[in-house]
């Protein structure tokens, strides 16, 4: 790892932050001051890394913090459990109320909604965001990168949100609302903002 003195400071702060979290979270009752110190150390690590070497510095600092946490986990692997609870017997279920046909068709519709349909809606959202960005003065490059970056971000969020709705009607309503709201600028402006 090539880096100046500040990068080493960022790495040290990252490790200190993880160690403080470990100390705080190991207590029966969490210590707010310790927690605060830990998160502040991690925040300071990110800032120092960012100041020293921008995004590269922040990325390397994040790797150091994650590595420190993994080392603490590795230590936990070799610790003996303090007790072992008795095993629970498996439950017997009669399987009533589970109609495989209904389950399959529901599953297919859910898959289509959260999968390809949500992807299409997310793409429309990203294209609308591009139009809005360029219209408000962003460069064409930034607008285009926003499309490339927003699709993989909005799609999983929308898919998860749809899966959280139990009623099919709500799923369709949310999908339709986002689609219509984003389709309008795409159709009206045609992307040539």
């Amino acid at each position: 790892m090539a880096g100046g003195g500040l990068m080493w400071l960022a790495a040290a702060l990252a490790v200190a932050g993880i160690l403080l979290l470990r100390a705080s979270w190991a207590r029966p009752v969490r210590s707010t001051p310790l927690n605060l110190c830990a998160w502040l150390a991690l925040l300071a690590a990110a800032i120092v890394g960012g100041v020293e070497a921008g995004a590269w510095g922040m990325a390397v600092t994040a790797l150091v913090a994650t590595g420190a946490a993994m080392l603490l986990l590795a230590k936990a692997v070799f610790e003996q459990p303090r007790w072992k609870r008795p095993a629970k017997q498996p439950r017997e279920v009669d399987g009533s109320g589970n109609d495989p046909k209904t389950g399959l068709s529901r599953g297919i519709v859910t898959f289509l909604l959260a999968g390809p349909i949500a992807l299409a809606v997310s793409t429309l959202f990203a294209l609308a965001a591009r139009i809005a960005l360029i219209a408000t003065g962003a460069s064409e490059a930034d607008g285009n990168v926003a499309v490339l970056g927003l699709v993989p971000l909005v799609w999983p969020i929308l898919a998860f949100a749809l899966l959280m709705f139990e009623r099919r009607k709500t799923q369709f309503l949310v999908t339709g609302a986002v689609a219509i709201a984003t389709l309008l600028p795409v159709v009206l402006v045609g992307g040539q903002a």
Partner: peptide, 8 residues
């Protein structure tokens, strides 16, 4: 986050 009962 640090609780790993791997040896169970």
């Amino acid at each position: 986050a640090f609780r790993l009962r791997a040896r169970r």
